[in-house]
Measured scan of single mutants.
Amino acid sequence: MDPFVVLVLCLSCLLLLSIWRQSSGRGKLPPGPTPLPVIGNILQIDIKDVSKSLTNLSKIYGPVFTLYFGLERMVVLHGYEVVKEALIDLGEEFSGRGHFPLAERANRGFGIVFSNGKRWKEIRRFSLMTLRNFGMGKRSIEDRVQEEARCLVEELRKTKASPCDPTFILGCAPCNVICSIIFQKRFDYKDQQFLNLMEKLNENIRIVSTPWIQICNNFPTIIDYFPGTHNKLLKNLAFMESDILEKVKEHQESMDINNPRDFIDCFLIKMEKEKQNQQSEFTIENLVITAADLLGAGTETTSTTLRYALLLLLKHPEVTAKVQEEIERVIGRNRSPCMQDRGHMPYTDAVVHEVQRYIDLIPTSLPHAVTCDVKFRNYLIPKGTTILTSLTSVLHDNKEFPNPEMFDPRHFLDEGGNFKKSNYFMPFSAGKRICVGEGLARMELFLFLTFILQNFNLKSLIDPKDLDTTPVVNGFASVPPFYQLCFIPV
């Protein structure tokens, strides 16, 4: 058959498939802009700032609406009420993970971030239990974070109060905490193996944040037939998995079943207990991918939040002064901060919360999916439909947070200066898919920041009023603009 005829037939089939998918069930789905064949609503979305586009569309179609990214149908949730109703009140029905062709290629359905069903539930339950087990290797997770915080302070001392970009050092600290939990080992910041790991993690975040990856996920045929950065992403992930597998083999040879040292040991012990169960989800494949998931999810998000926190503290020296006064009063100079201190430091706690609220790190979270046909607000959402959640619409709700575009710790303080919780605080998402490392991340943010401010004054290279804190939105995360500062020993 003539190649031209084959091409026309293929394009015609794709067009018909697109029209059929977009028209099927439209009477039951939430409203939304009319999609174009094949490309859907992509032309109506700013790929570099999806969150802003969703906010604009919500003003037209309401808090629940339908979009098509290519052939992929998505239902968008915008605003606290619908997000709570879906992710919390109907948590089980909305607990699936959205379709990610690239991740599915890399992870093969294993791990904790992109798995679904029984596998996801069992691996998540085990990971939560293990991360909360403060007795691994007779050292609590808090001990590990405190140790890394001391190392971080010593690295900052080496800058000798000269101007520096904190990106690298602030990236090393949370990565080392995860390494300590998974591998029972922290690395020197100049260790070549550690630097290679950091390089792969950072490069992957840069790649994932590009519009090209959005295109690959919406048109998965590209993955096999086109060159691009997605190939580098898959190569980096394969490198990390190979490295983790080597460490798993080392653990198998040296493990003491009665004295687990780290996450890998705990997983291997669980595998041993379930070795007679042919349906067990505790396999080497799941261990390797879960460890890679924890490394990827637990490094860049925390380091970016820390980097943004220091920029905001530079911009608002009056806030920094209040935090340091609270540190001096509650902790002093002669001991290290600990998590028990947080309950006695409402202002510092409010500042950490406000940093996370203000920066809105992951504006749309990772997409969910419905696990069955769901009736939601008089609409029928078919099983498997991807759910896109606007966390921006919750964290920047102007009824809950007056002047949401302003950095103001009073958003989390009552009139008496006591810490005030808010149900709208969802930087880790909400419901059954809430970030498994939430507790660890909150511990790291509090301890790293208090250790830094206990030991250093922060000095800006320019007038604080002239510092730009506008986030650089890159399609996946909101990151701070480049800046330098000086760490002046107190």
Rank of each mutant, 00 (worst) to 15 (best):
D2M: 11
D2C: 10
P3F: 14
V5N: 11
C13Q: 04
W20N: 06
R21K: 13
R21F: 10
P35H: 06
I39R: 03
I42H: 04
K48A: 11
Y61N: 02
F69V: 13
L77C: 06
H78A: 09
V82A: 13
V83Q: 04
A86H: 00
I88W: 07
I88T: 06
G98D: 03
R105I: 06
R105K: 12
G109T: 09
G111W: 01
S115C: 06
R132W: 09
K138Y: 12
R139K: 14
Q146V: 14
A149D: 02
L152S: 01
E154K: 12
E155C: 09
L156V: 07
K158T: 15
S162Q: 14
D165E: 08
D165Q: 04
I169H: 09
L170H: 00
A173R: 00
I182Y: 02
F183S: 06
R186E: 03
L201M: 12
I205F: 10
V208I: 15
F219K: 05
I222L: 15
P227E: 05
L237A: 10
F239I: 15
E241T: 11
E241P: 01
D243P: 05
L245C: 05
Q252A: 11
E253F: 14
M255D: 03
M255N: 05
R261M: 06
I264R: 01
C266Y: 15
F267K: 01
I269V: 09
M271G: 07
Q278Y: 11
E281M: 12
T283W: 02
I284R: 09
N286L: 04
L287V: 05
T290M: 06
T290E: 03
G298F: 04
G298W: 05
A309N: 01
L314Q: 06
H316L: 05
E318V: 08
V323S: 06
V323K: 00
V323A: 08
E325L: 11
I327R: 00
I327P: 00
E328N: 14
V330W: 07
I331Y: 00
P337N: 01
P337I: 07
G343V: 12
P346T: 06
Y347S: 01
E354S: 01
S365T: 05
L366H: 05
C372A: 13
V374F: 02
V374R: 02
N378T: 10
N378E: 12
L380S: 10
G384M: 04
T386V: 11
L388V: 15
T389G: 02
S390C: 06
V394L: 11
L395E: 03
P404E: 06
E405D: 15
M406E: 14
P409N: 02
P409A: 06
H411W: 01
L413C: 04
E415T: 10
N418M: 12
Y424M: 08
M426V: 15
G431L: 01
K432L: 09
R433G: 02
E438F: 06
L440E: 03
A441T: 07
R442I: 08
T450K: 05
I462G: 10
K465G: 12
D466S: 11
T470E: 13
V472I: 14
S478Q: 15
P480V: 13
Q484K: 13
F487L: 07
